[in-house]
């Protein structure tokens, strides 16, 4: 247990992204204000207008966004050097998500991008873990606010937060949803990490894989199932790369994309 009198110093940071995850934290409102008794927000682009480039040590840093420029990388390394614990906040930070789509663009287009870039950009969009040690992932596009709060509470009480490594189907079953795959919808639930409380399937919408693919999923089998639904190779490639993470076992889908 931490000593209650000493507030935990927290920073929120943003690399290249839409900043929806940081905003989602703000939506915790009173619940977040309550936590203020135990935490001190030292840096936040959301709450403070002056982003101090402070070297003040942090206990906990949340970083959203992908690394796409040298500026992002320098900032990330600086954050890592001054924080005890680093959390990748959201899909961009955890798996490069949507920005990472450009990593797989045809080389012609990549060339065009390079030419168009007025300031130098990296060839690809990277997750934080490509450059620094990441202590925890809060996945999703956008994050699940409740999961954020659970993590924060555990952290404040000195408990070690653990990733729950089960697929979305697990939570979908708990909510007693009908299976979208059985209804003929191309749902990525079986291969995607849970933790979102099966939000999309519960809204009758297919899972699009925003929380990252589980390690040992049987992608081939799911692809076969999608094929059976009448989806073309290109459509299947589209689906498996919604959040840029084409599994190695499905590299065969790449060719005509």
């Amino acid at each position: 247990m931490r000593v209650a009198s000493k507030k935990v110093k927290i920073g929120f940071f943003s690399l290249t992204c839409c900043e929806g995850c940081g905003l989602a934290v703000l939506d915790l409102e009173e619940k977040l204000l309550k936590a203020f008794r135990q935490i001190e927000i030292v840096e936040s682009r959301l709450l403070m207008e002056k982003a101090k480039e402070s070297s003040e040590k942090l206990d906990l840093a949340f970083v959203e966004g992908s690394v796409v420029s040298k500026h992002d990388l320098d900032k990330l390394r600086h954050i890592r050097s001054k924080t005890g614990f680093l959390v990748a906040l959201g899909a961009c930070a955890a798996i490069a998500g949507i920005p990472g789509i450009r990593n797989a663009l045809p080389s012609g287009l990549k060339e065009k991008i390079k030419r168009q870039a007025i300031k130098p950009v990296k060839e690809k969009a990277f997750p934080l873990s490509a450059f620094v040690d990441v202590d925890y992932l809060l996945q999703g596009c956008s994050i699940n606010e409740q999961e954020f709060l659970d993590f924060l509470n555990k952290f404040l009480h000195g408990a070690k937060p653990r990733l729950q490594e089960v697929p979305v189907c697990f939570e979908c079953k708990l909510r007693e949803n009908g299976c979208l795959l059985l209804k003929g919808e191309a749902c990525l639930g079986p291969v995607t990490y849970a933790g979102c409380d099966a939000l999309c399937p519960s809204n009758n919408a297919q899972c699009i894989g925003c929380r990252g693919f589980t390690k040992d999923a049987n992608f081939k089998a799911l692809d076969e199932l999608f094929k059976g639904l009448g989806l073309s190779k290109k459509e299947r490639y589209n689906l498996f790369t919604y959040f840029n993470q084409l599994p190695k076992t499905l590299s065969c889908l790449e060719s005509d994309s």
């Binding site: 920005p99 450009r102 663009l105 589209n238 994309s257």
Partner: peptide
């Protein structure tokens, strides 16, 4: 800021 290239990313 690094451009985000959404117009290129959605091609295909």
């Amino acid at each position: 800021e690094g451009q985000r290239f959404f117009e290129q990313m959605v091609v295909g």
